[in-house]
């Protein structure tokens, strides 16, 4: 009798061993990229393809799963396994895949509509479970594929095709949601800072457990320059706060500004000599300070980017596998004895 506890794939040892030397080109598929010219998605794809060769994972052990939306076309362009699923549900597929194939490295590509509106529930639950998935949420604050309606991250009052006199609803903060749901890795980056983007994707991919990356991504057709006020090269140093582990929270072209706490409120200090700035510790288990940082909205504060939180916790799929292993500790069970388990009687 055959009994199987894992999917019978024979592809040798999975990670690291005899890893081929990859280049960016190995991760470029033969598909023509069909995003609008100038879209921020191009930058994210390029940095992903640049990061993947150095990740230490075989190409065939990578899976990209997406939902629906402009960002969700992403898997077609990466030369590995890809699944372009249905609206909002990428995380559900990723969860089932990861639980049954823990050795795979699974990326979930989503957007502000896909991940926070129709798929919002799944995002919460994948985070609290701490599945080892890397979730990249392209936040352009607009619905692009359906040609320009407001999204759950659009600012209140925004004029769009479906809100000709302005929206009447407040936006969600993806970072706040991730922290509230207990995500073990939470980061934000921008499409226009390719170095920071690549580093953030790399750190997220190497995190064991759920890693959530919000990317501020420009939709140059329906919501152009949504983030330009702080992401433009000329102003970036003064308008954004680069979070670095173990370093003081300082910004400005000459590091002349800092962030410190006044009670529970963060405040900006404009003094190059001030040493009261907070020191960033992304490994702090308690998410309160990270949540305070997540609440720093432009223009009152500089926009924090970088890793808000990176803590260790057991993953869902490991705990599930441990339960199965524990149940099997007694040896190979016999199905016949399962059928005959409990009360039986014999008719002669």
């Amino acid at each position: 009798m055959t009994t199987a506890y894992s999917v019978p794939i024979d592809n040798g040892s999975l990670i690291g061993d005899d890893l081929p030397v990859y280049t960016r080109k190995d991760f470029v598929s033969n598909q023509e990229v069909r995003w609008c010219p100038g879209c921020g998605d191009y930058g994210i794809l390029a940095q992903m393809q640049k990061m993947l060769p150095n990740l230490g994972v075989r190409r065939e052990d990578l899976v990209f799963i997406s939902g629906i939306g402009c960002s969700s076309r992403f898997p077609y362009y990466v030369e590995t396994y890809g699944f372009h699923s249905i609206h909002g549900r990428a995380l559900t597929l990723a969860s089932g895949l990861k639980v049954t194939r823990p050795e795979l490295k699974v990326f979930v590509i989503t957007g502000d509509g896909d991940g926070l509106s129709i798929g919002g529930n799944h995002l919460l639950h994948a985070m609290r479970r701490n599945l080892d998935l890397t979730v990249v949420l392209f936040n352009n604050r607009i619905y692009g594929l359906t040609k320009g309606q407001y999204s759950p991250t659009s600012e209140i009052g925004k004029i769009t095709k479906s809100s000709p006199v302005g929206t009447t609803e407040s936006p969600l903060s993806p970072i706040k949601i991730a922290l509230a749901a207990g995500a073990t890795f939470v980061a934000r980056t921008i499409d226009r800072d390719i170095k920071h983007l690549e580093q953030t994707l790399d750190a997220a991919a190497r995190h064991k457990g759920i890693s959530f990356v919000e990317v501020y991504q420009n939709c140059n057709v329906f919501n152009d320059n949504a983030f330009a006020a702080f992401t433009d090269k000329e102003v970036r140093q003064d308008k954004m706060l680069y979070l670095e582990n173990g370093k003081p929270m300082r910004f400005g072209s000459n590091n002349e500004h800092g962030i410190r706490l006044n009670g529970f409120m963060p405040e900006v200090v404009h003094d190059v000599a001030d040493d009261s700035s907070l020191i960033h510790h992304d490994t702090t288990a308690n998410p309160v300070l990270a949540s305070i940082l997540a609440g720093m909205d432009y223009p009152e504060y500089p926009v924090p980017v970088g890793i808000f939180r990176a803590v260790d916790a057991p993953t869902y799929e490991d705990l599930v596998s441990e339960q199965v292993a524990h149940a099997q500790a007694g040896g190979t069970p016999d199905f016949n004895s399962l059928l005959r388990g409990g009360e039986t009687w014999v008719v002669d």
Binding site: V7, P8, I9, I65, F83, S85, R89, L91, T92, L93, A94, S95, G96, L97, K98, V99, T100, R101, L104, N121, H122, L124, H125
Partner: peptide, 18 residues
């Protein structure tokens, strides 16, 4: 799962993985 859709989605993910 957190809902019916997640339940079937996860089953599809498992099927995709073999």
């Amino acid at each position: 799962a957190e809902d019916e859709i997640a339940a079937v989605g996860a089953a599809i993910g498992a099927a995709y993985g073999g």
